[in-house]
Amino acid sequence: MSNVLETKIMGVTLKNPVIAASGTFGFGEEYSEYTDVSRLGGISGKGLTLNGSKGNDGIRIYESASGLMNSIGLENPGVEVFVKEKCAVMRKMNTAIIANLGGHSLEDYISGVEMLDSADIDILELNISCPNVKKGGMSFGTDPKFAGELVARLRKLTTKPLLVKLTPNAPDIVAVAKACEDNGADGVSLINTLLGMAIDVKRKKAVFNNVYAGFSGPAVMPVALRMVHQVAHSVKIPVVGMGGITSTEDALAFMMAGASAIQVGTATFYDPDAMVKIIQGLEDYAIENKLNNISEIVGIV
């Protein structure tokens, strides 16, 4: 394989710009039976919280037209288990390791980042956006001032490349992105899930115990693409784009909009090989269009 897809972002070299999105790929183990995980540019592991969490009760998955709503509620084993057990397993997969960290409070983020700073990971993705957890989460990601202060605090604690994952539910996502950049983020990734809702009309009740849930999949792509375009044209740090990507064309669109790399989540559920197909498609595209590197199309629209 040629290196037309080799992608350098935030001081890290990825085999290609295609990364498994947090929460949709476990820690890589489960899917390694169904797709060639070593072909991926990277894996963003399940969102971690300092002490782990059992997640939400009730229905967690609900399908909509070309979309998916989830209310997993950040079920995860906690940072310590990740550092002690999952990291080593992920390292064997021969792809970049991204730890995704969420938090209920500033103190939780601080302890989590301190523990992950000495772990064998390539990138630290800060989830400041999960809409599922009632406390914290939401407020950091929706307010530029809180987001900026959080990033400034955490920046001092780690030398790992810091990728801040943004929520589309912020009133001004561009302002949040800029605040992250100004306070030392090495990159931003977007979008996390939109906030959606489903009602069981037979039972006259909301489907989810938490009423609202995270909305992802092909249905959200136009919104995600617009936000990536806006953010990429407002910051100088790399942008990692996601939201509804299912095909090579979708991936190309995000890159043309300004994403240096992309993540794929929901698409893997209906086709475990979706990312491998996208990687092959990007390579074919680069060769057909005589690109030296796929990065030549980043931001051309």
Binding site: G23, T24, F25, G26, E30, Y31, E33, Y34, K46, G55, D57, I59, R60, I61, Y62, L68, N70, I72, E75, T266, T268, F269, P272
Partner: peptide, 15 residues
């Protein structure tokens, strides 16, 4: 209810 079917998404968890 399931999304991935392979153990990755934690959508089908029961207590």
């Amino acid at each position: 209810r399931m999304a991935c079917g392979v153990g990755a998404c934690l959508g089908c968890t029961i207590k």
